[in-house]
């Protein structure tokens, strides 16, 4: 019983790792651009596909894909931001939500035409095959790697934003972009960079997910809605909120599934409704952050 409960908690941490990385990207993008990026799940899917196609046609191994795929997807994100999104910044946020939803439908259908609905398997890299003995239980090595890699990326991103001068510039631009620009900082370039970085984070999560799930055109759809719930629970635009809430929600949902399986699919939304009732700005959010 205890070992299966431990296993379930670790499964929750794996789901949480994906929620955390995806909601982190969403939070960074929302914080600076005030865009609810519906296409974030598509970037996650593209990340997995770049790794898959790279492996099939170029023999790209997992470790190279972990670096190359976020770069490729960041470039896709930057092109989308410069070509389409930047034209709508002065309009209501709903327009960009609709645009990113349209981008999602377009890219997903294009991928479906090319690769079909059926997912394709992506092999676990050799060094991460098998299981590891954690002392209190045995758990697949690759899944432990996912948790650790996600934690490293999340903490590094948090440090970048909270503890560096680039991060201070980002936070200032979130608060008053006009004044930051009047100090001589190229805020539009910063916005483009941040959008690209957010997309790269999603792609990184996509590559990590490739050996866990099948690589499929609609894989982003399955995760983006719960990820939005995580962002709302953590607090719109809150970096720390996204990371902590991502892991906590992953574990809570896994435990829900363990003790009462019928509730597992809806638990995250019950949690979101409860948090919104008690603290409408989210657990880590502020009124300024959600404005």
């Amino acid at each position: 019983m205890l070992e299966s409960l431990g296993g379930q908690i670790f499964n929750g941490l794996v789901s949480g790792a994906f929620y955390a990385m995806l909601s982190l990207g969403l939070a960074i993008i929302f914080g600076l651009l005030r865009i609810v990026n519906f296409a974030h799940g598509t970037m996650y899917m593209l990340g997995a596909f770049v790794a898959y196609v790279g492996a099939q046609s170029l023999g790209l191994n997992f470790w190279v894909a972990l670096i190359a795929s976020p770069i490729v997807v960041a470039i896709v994100g930057i092109i989308l931001e410069r070509l389409l999104l930047c034209r709508l910044y002065k309009l209501d946020v709903l327009y960009n939500l609709l645009l990113t939803f349209g981008i999602t439908l377009f890219i997903e259908d294009a991928m479906r035409l090319k690769f079909g609905m059926q997912g394709s398997p992506y092999v676990i890299p050799g060094k991460l095959e098998g299981v590891v003995n954690l002392g209190f239980m045995i758990y697949p090595t690759y899944r432990v790697f996912v948790i650790v890699a996600s934690l490293i990326v999340c903490i590094a991103t948090w440090l970048l934003i909270e503890k560096t001068s680039l991060g201070a510039t980002l936070r200032a631009a979130t608060e008053n972009p006009g004044l930051v620009r009047a100090f001589g900082i190229n805020v539009p370039a910063l916005i483009t960079g941040v959008f690209g970085f957010g997309c790269a984070l999603a792609a990184f999560a996509g590559v990590l997910a490739a050996p866990v799930n099948n690589v499929a055109p609609l894989m982003g759809d399955d995760i983006i809605i719960p990820t939005f719930a995580v962002v709302v629970i953590g607090g719109m635009g809150s970096i720390l909120g996204s990371i902590v809430t991502g892991f906590v929600v992953g574990v809570v949902v896994a435990l829900g599934a363990f003790f009462y399986p019928p509730i597992s699919g809806t638990l995250i939304y019950i949690l979101m409704a409860f948090v919104l009732l008690v603290k409408p700005t989210g657990l880590f959010g502020s009124v300024e952050g959600s404005r």
Partner: peptide, 12 residues
């Protein structure tokens, strides 16, 4: 900026 420390504001 309310999200920045005194030093961060100074160095911005």
């Amino acid at each position: 900026f309310s999200g920045l420390t005194v030093r961060e504001n100074l160095m911005l």
